[in-house]
Structures are given as C-alpha cells and as structure tokens.
C-alpha cells in the first residue's frame, strides 16, 4: 500500500454525512469494522448542524463569505459548526479583532443565520429541553 497524498482535499461534515448515509442505505448489508465506524460517525454527525444543510445553501453561503478574505479552513469551520455568537467567530477566525470590524462579524453571523436557519431552531429546542429538566 502506498500513500500518494495524505491530505488531497478537505471534506465538510455535510459531504461525509451524505456519503456515509449512502453506504448505510446501500442494498448490500455492511458488516465488520465498516459498519461500526459508519454507525458511530453518523451518530456523531446527526447531532451536528450538517443534518439540515444542503449543497445549495453551503455554496451560496461560501459565495457570500468571499468578501471577508477568510482562508479555507476558517470557512470550513464556519460551515461545519456555524457560530451563533461573536465569541465563537473570534475562536474560529485567527486574529479576528484585527481582520474584521464589529459590523463585519455581525454580517457574517447574519449570513450564516440566513443560510442555515435551523441553527437557531435547534438552539431553542435545546433550551426547552433544559427548561423541562
């Protein structure tokens, strides 16, 4: 076995999610390690926001984010775990205080909220659950 490139491309959580679901639903019954890892990975991904994403929204969102001069891994994080607060943006974007103004941060948040509207729904559901506890 030979490794040609250990990092040929990055995948978003959504792409992995869709691919694994295809494997899970394929007519052939999966067995062994593949079944284990697809099951465990899907269970993790189902809890993230990628469950409600779709390719159009992601492409459109990336287009809207172009003007902010973010690098690829930053954009990947924004799509994988869309932040809802300025604090989270600060974590994901290196030196965000120098690179982005407060208005820009707000614009990014509203772009993300526009393309991934389920984000806030999920959040309120969680809060409801907590209140019930």
């Amino acid at each position: 076995m030979e490794i040609i490139s250990e990092n040929a491309a990055s995948l978003s959580n959504y792409e992995v999610f869709v691919h694994l679901q295809k494997i899970k639903e394929s007519r052939k019954k999966q067995k062994g390690q593949l079944a284990t890892i697809t099951y465990e990975t899907l269970r993790y991904l189902e809890e993230t926001s990628c469950k409600n994403q779709n390719p159009e929204d992601i492409t459109q969102c990336l287009k809207d984010l172009e003007e902010f001069n973010l690098n690829k891994s930053e954009k990947l994080m924004l799509v994988n775990t869309p932040p809802a607060t300025p604090l989270e943006i600060q974590l994901m974007i290196e030196e965000s205080e120098e690179r982005l103004s407060e208005e820009q941060v707000q614009t990014i948040l509203s772009i993300l909220a526009k393309h991934f509207p389920h984000l806030h729904i999920v959040k309120t559901e969680q809060e409801d659950e907590e209140n019930l506890d």
């Binding site: 490139s5 990092n7 990055s10 995948l11 992995v16």
Partner: peptide, 25 residues
C-alpha cells in the same frame, strides 16, 4: 475535521469474489 487521502494499493481478490463486479469487490 475530515480529509480525503489518495492511496494506491494492490488489491487481492480471492476467487470466491469473482462473481462480483470488479469495482464492488
């Protein structure tokens, strides 16, 4: 979080899998 790795392998297909399509095997 996830990446694609490009690899090359010499894959041995044992005779009992010859009924399958090569790609699937």
């Amino acid at each position: 979080m996830f990446v694609l790795a490009e690899m090359k392998n010499v894959t041995r297909i044992s005779p009992e899998l010859f009924n399958l399509n090569l790609n699937e095997a």
